[in-house]
Design a protein around this nucleic acid. Structure first.
Length: 385
DNA sequence: ATGTCC
């Protein structure tokens, strides 16, 4: 896609779209990004190749100076992807048994959380968590959130793969979850008390308070992913002392110093490209990519895609797929993966067909010289609460 | 997205 001059101009001068020709993008999302690029303080707005429309566009990095916009991060502050290596050996995994276990437990809440003080887990927040929210800590949530067992498909950079701690013989557990109701209350309050939809001046009390609570939510969400992994592995009867290899948050605002300027990078469905290796899953029916960002990702707002990006609206999925699948047959993917989910609507909404092709999204990142691919993984069991 | 909204 090119920046077309004149009447047919597709996007504004301070908007960058990271997308190659083959990668389809919804014009609606680009329009949303154009709008945001005109907000006071916005220096640049970047659309990643998984850009799609939302309340504010998803798959976007918005760089501001002097002002913070909580609504550009959204309600699910701290949402992200964590990948754990499990004790389960690839050649020994018994998927049918694991499915039965997940169906039997029904709800992760039934599995006790570890005690505070367990030095193997980062549980410092456990003792001081806000009490109304304690119940949702360590639960997956809805929408596109999931827990997924994956096996290594292809290794492209053997040495890097091993140096990150990966072992091709072990099953990985990928958790996509966020801050549940906690982030929501933080966003709501910033809007109710400080009219944050108009932005918060960086020097204001409001901005300091938002950033402080935002950081709590980022930590809370990361811990919650740890605890989801803990509970699932405990249910499986294997060691729940996980080895976390990747933890990348795709909804947050982070401060970056560039040419002695203080930039606020708002990421909404955008992975950081300046914090080490990144995991970018496709749908449950396609591969997950482990990638290493290259050194200079300034062009993409120091950000990468966070997934494949939706292709279909949720409301369209069931009617479009009802003739193709039954509510049982949709629980198997074309990569021979299996799905445990007791919400039939959600099964259709999160079908592989509802998402764009991850390979094309990744190719856009390669074309813009943003990443090297380290390895791919194949989903073998997707669990949605 | 949400112990979400009907």
């Amino acid at each position: 896609m090119l920046n077309v001059e004149g009447e047919n101009k597709l996007y504004m001068n301070n908007v960058t779209i990271i997308s190659s020709e083959k990668n389809w993008l919804e014009q609606n999302a680009v329009n949303q990004l154009n709008q945001i690029s005109n907000l006071p303080g916005v220096v640049r707005a970047i659309g990643l190749p998984d850009l799609h429309p939302g309340k504010t566009p998803v798959g976007a990095a918005i760089i501001t100076e002097g002002i913070i916009y909580p609504h550009l991060v959204g309600n699910d502050i701290g949402c992200g992807m964590s990948m754990f290596m499990t004790e389960i050996e690839k050649r020994k995994v018994k998927v049918d048994r694991l499915i039965k276990t997940l169906e039997r437990i029904g709800n992760l809440k039934e599995i006790a959380l570890p005690e505070t003080g367990d030095e193997n887990l980062s549980l410092s927040l456990l003792g001081e968590r806000p009490s109304p929210l304690g119940a949702s800590l360590g639960t997956i949530g809805g929408g596109n959130h999931f827990a997924e067992l994956q096996e290594v498909e292809t290794i492209f950079a053997e040495e890097k793969f091993r140096s990150l701690g990966f072992d091709k013989n072990q099953i990985m557990l990928l958790i996509h979850s966020g801050s549940r109701g906690y982030g929501q209350t933080i966003l709501d309050e910033s809007i109710r008390v400080y009219s944050a939809q108009n932005g918060l001046s960086q020097s204001s009390e409001a901005a300091k308070e938002y950033l402080s609570k935002h950081n709590d939510a980022v930590n809370w969400a990361s811990l919650s992913r740890d605890l989801i992994a803990y509970r699932i592995l405990k249910a499986f009867g294997v060691s729940p002392q996980t080895t976390k290899l990747i933890d990348c948050c795709h909804n947050s605002v982070s401060v970056k110093e560039s040419d002695s300027k203080l930039l606020y990078i708002h990421r909404k469905g955008a992975s950081p490209a300046d914090q080490g290796a990144v995991i970018i899953p496709g749908s449950r029916g396609s591969l997950t990519y482990l990638v290493m960002p290259k050194d200079n990702t300034e062009i993409s707002g120091y950000s990468l895609a966070h997934g494949a990006g939706r292709k279909w609206e949720r409301s369209m999925c069931r009617s479009r797929l009802e003739n193709k699948y039954t509510k049982e047959s949709i629980k198997s993917t074309k990569l021979k993966g299996r799905v445990v989910c007791n919400d039939t609507n959600l099964l259709f909404e999160e079908a592989a067909e509802a998402y764009k092709n991850i390979d094309t999204v990744i190719q856009s990142l390669i074309d813009f010289e943003l990443i090297n691919v380290i390895a791919t993984f194949k989903p073998i069991l997707t669990y949605k609460a």
